[in-house]
């Protein structure tokens, strides 16, 4: 078994009286792809925001590479190797695609020149090189999602958090993105991926965590989780179970 890279321990996040994430616990091994699924409002994005430092956990601890990173701000996590994308993509619209990726590379490669060289490699890899000069605001949705991945990759992360990078794409674009994620996995980067499209999760994930109303209701291999009565009930209601 490979080393554990991410350890999520009893993590709780409340907003007022609402338990958006309630006692979630799982480990992610080095090189593993973990799917994070659940119905709308299950707390997936909140959990992402807690792991990536945007919200401190109300309770529980998060360890990354053996180091307690609970409540550490996002920019420090980015520097030690946690890259993330946003469900609502966050390009810097007034800047070119290339500049967007250069900025991401700055924290690894101090100078603009070195970071630009690195950015070109990333853009070649993600297939955005021919649009490098475009303003990020002029990209299609598929392009913007790819840009999100490019920026996260430019950090040279050892853990990548992907928040719905496939949702909203047409089938051809979706296949290309799945292929891209598999290539990223091939580099040995651990991935935690949120996605609504089951086909994507089933194809990509080694294991799956299922959340419902903030609670962790299942954890296991995709095929097993898909047969879990609790999961079926969460997705399809009482009758189906």
């Amino acid at each position: 078994m490979a080393e554990t890279i991410l350890k999520v321990q009893d993590v709780v996040k409340t907003f007022g009286g609402l338990h958006a994430v309630n006692r979630v616990t799982f480990d992610l091994a080095e090189g593993e792809v973990m799917g994070l699924i659940g119905p709308n409002g299950a707390g997936k994005t909140t959990l992402f925001n807690v792991i990536s430092g945007y919200y401190p956990p109300t309770q529980g601890r998060i360890h990354f590479k053996g180091q307690d990173v609970s409540g550490v701000p996002p920019y420090k996590l980015a520097a030690i190797g946690i890259g993330r994308t946003f469900q609502v993509v966050k390009p810097f619209p007034g800047l070119s695609v290339l500049e967007n990726v250069i900025i991401a590379g700055l924290c690894r490669y101090g100078t603009r020149r070195a970071s630009e060289k690195h950015a070109w490699k990333i853009l070649d890899f993600t297939g955005l090189a021919d649009q490098a000069d475009k303003s990020a605001a002029n990209l299609t949705l598929a392009g913007r999602k790819r840009l999100e991945i490019s920026k996260a990759l430019a950090l040279e992360p050892s853990l990548l958090l992907l928040d719905e990078v496939v949702a909203g794409l047409n089938p051809t674009e979706a296949d290309k993105t799945i292929e891209l994620i598999l290539k990223i996995k091939g580099f040995g980067i651990s991935i935690l991926i949120v996605e609504h499209i089951m086909r994507v999760i089933m194809n990509l994930s080694d294991r799956v965590v299922v959340l419902n109303f903030g609670q962790q209701i299942a954890l296991g291999k995709p095929a097993d989780v898909a047969r879990d009565p609790m999961v079926i009930q969460a997705y399809f209601g009482e009758d189906a179970a």
């Binding site: 980015a78 966050k90 991401a104 603009r112």
Partner: peptide, 26 residues
């Protein structure tokens, strides 16, 4: 215009949360 600093400033102006995810301390 030339140093990385300008890019960081622009990143924060365009999207502060997005900038934080890229290792920039706003």
């Amino acid at each position: 215009e030339w140093a990385p600093f300008g890019l960081k400033v622009r990143a924060i102006r365009e999207d502060q949360d997005g900038a934080m995810a890229l290792g920039i301390n706003p």
